[in-house]
Structures are given as structure tokens and as C-alpha cells.
């Protein structure tokens, strides 16, 4: 039986707010695919960074729904139109999330540190000139700077700070964001990762990656930055790269340079 997600017809809109698209659907599909794990995870606080139309946070609240009562949802967006549209989308579906109009988690980082059990992010990942990053309105939903990584690279350390010990992060990445490098950087912070959903459309190739804290990953991460222990690092890298078959170009370049 398919579980209920947000209905497109009930998602509110505004000319300056990103509408649900393939990337949003991929992230919701990842949450659906992981639904049983999420229920067993017993999250107390779930958060979305960059909620846009509200399609994803609304879907998350509906997917966990009645079977997981007593979850508190928080969503942020830097675009004031987006948080208002999200509020309308939530209300149309009869669910609630607390909304904050802010840049990633500005204002929440101190008190919310270590409290977020599930974080979902569909970041602005489209490669653009750097000066397009941080613009107001709908551009903030896609402009990602060089390799589409400018905002992602700001979000990751903040996510690390906000996630609880058992915290999970689900993030959408585009193949040109170099997702295997993102996984390696997260491994250095002590996170294991796996691809939950992989989807290629005519325009883009998307991955939804799940990150979680893992003591072994932390050890591997430490070894990786120790110059004399390159062997395990290579092993980790190969196992991560094997998750990304489409990254053959990157793998070749990487091998050539080492």
C-alpha cells in the first residue's frame, strides 16, 4: 500500500518559490523507501533546511504520521516567500512544522546543537557563477556556485553540529557535485553513507544520500588524514566510489593524480 505523501494539488505556490520537481520527488521517495527504518529510529526532532514549497517536510510529516506521533518538525528557508508557502502547504495537509526564515540554521545553531534526529536537505546544487549564490528569491533554491557545492559545503558542518548522536541526514546531490567527495568529507567527520535513491533524468543524474554517525567511519577518517596510512584510505575510497558507478571520470582522474 502506498503511503500518503503531500499532494501536488495541495502544495501552495508563489512565483519566487521553487515548485516540487524531480529532485523533490527523489528525496520523498528516499524517505518512503526508508520509512520502516525511520519509524524504528524514533526521532523526536526532524528538520528540513531549505523547505521551498513545503512539499518535502509535509510529506515527511505525513509519511511518519499517525504511527509516529509526538515528533516535532522544524523547517527553515532563507526565502521569506518560501516559508510562507510552506506554512500554507502544511496547513492544507493538516500537519504542522515550526518555520524559521533564516540562512540554513542561523539563530538555531546554538540551542538546537545535537538535537536533530533526522535532517532532510534538497540543497541549491546547480553549478552557477559564484556571484549568483546568496541572491534573493527563487535563485536561492538552485544557485550552487562552483560545482554546485558552495551552499552544500556550508550546510554539511552545520548539519554535523545539529545532528544528535543517532542523527541521520538525507541529502540530494547532483553527479557534478562530486557526491563521492562529499561522502569522503563526511567520513572524516565520522559519518557513514549510502545511496538511498538514484535517478537519472534527461537533464540530470541525482542521488539521495543518507549519512549517519559511525564509529568505524571516524576511525577510517582519522587514518585517511594520516599520511603514512594510505592503504586503508584507498580501501575506503574504492568502496565509496563503487557506490557511484557514474563517477568513472572522476575515478580515472583521481587515479592519475595519485
Amino acid at each position: 500500500m502506498p503511503f500518503r505523501t503531500a499532494q501536488i494539488g495541495l502544495v501552495s505556490s508563489h512565483p519566487e518559490v521553487y515548485e516540487p520537481c524531480d529532485d523533490s520527488f527523489a528525496l520523498v521517495d528516499a524517505l518512503l523507501a526508508d520509512r520502516n527504518h525511520l519509524l524504528e529510529h524514533h526521532p523526536t526532532l526532524c528538520m528540513e533546511v531549505g523547505c521551498g514549497s513545503g512539499y518535502i517536510i509535509t510529506s515527511l510529516a505525513l509519511i511518519l504520521g499517525q504511527e509516529a506521533p509526538g515528533i516535532h518538525y522544524i523547517a527553515t528557508d532563507t526565502n521569506p516567500h518560501a516559508v510562507r508557502v510552506t506554512s500554507e502547504t502544511l496547513e492544507a495537509h493538516g500537519v504542522h512544522a515550526e518555520l524559521v526564515n533564516t540562512d540554513i540554521a542561523l539563530g538555531l545553531e546554538k540551542r538546537l546543537a545535537g538535537l536533530v534526529d533526522v535532517m532532510v536537505v534538497n540543497p541549491p546544487y546547480v553549478p552557477t557563477p559564484e556571484d549568483e549564490v546568496g541572491r534573493e528569491g527563487i535563485a536561492s533554491s538552485w544557485a550552487g556556485g562552483e560545482n554546485g557545492r558552495s551552499v552544500i559545503d556550508r550546510i554539511l558542518p552545520i548539519a554535523d553540529n545539529l545532528l544528535s548522536d543517532k542523527g541521520w541526514l538525507y541529502m540530494v546531490t547532483l553527479i557534478c557535485n562530486n557526491p563521492s567527495e562529499i561522502c569522503l568529507q563526511m567520513r572524516e567527520r565520522g559519518y557513514a553513507s549510502r545511496i538511498v535513491v538514484q535517478r537519472s533524468t534527461e537533464e540530470e543524474s541525482l542521488h539521495v544520500i543518507k549519512f549517519w554517525r559511525d564509529l568505524d567511519a571516524q576511525e577510517d577518517g582519522k587514518q585517511m588524514v594520516t599520511p603514512n596510512k594510505t592503504a586503508p584510505a584507498r580501501g575506503v575510497m574504492e568502496s565509496l566510489l563503487s557506490q557511484f558507478p557514474l563517477l568513472s571520470t572522476w575515478r580515472t582522474n583521481s587515479n592519475n593524480s595519485s
Binding site: 516559508v83 506554512s87 524559521v100 533564516t102 540562512d103 542561523l106 538555531l108
Partner: peptide, 13 residues
């Protein structure tokens, strides 16, 4: 002052 409008605080700096 960080304004709160329609139940949403604006924490942007």
C-alpha cells in the same frame, strides 16, 4: 528586533 509575522520568525541578519 527579529520580527515574527504570521507565526514565522525572521532571523536573517
Amino acid at each position: 528586533r527579529f520580527p515574527v509575522s504570521k507565526g514565522i520568525p525572521n532571523m536573517l541578519l
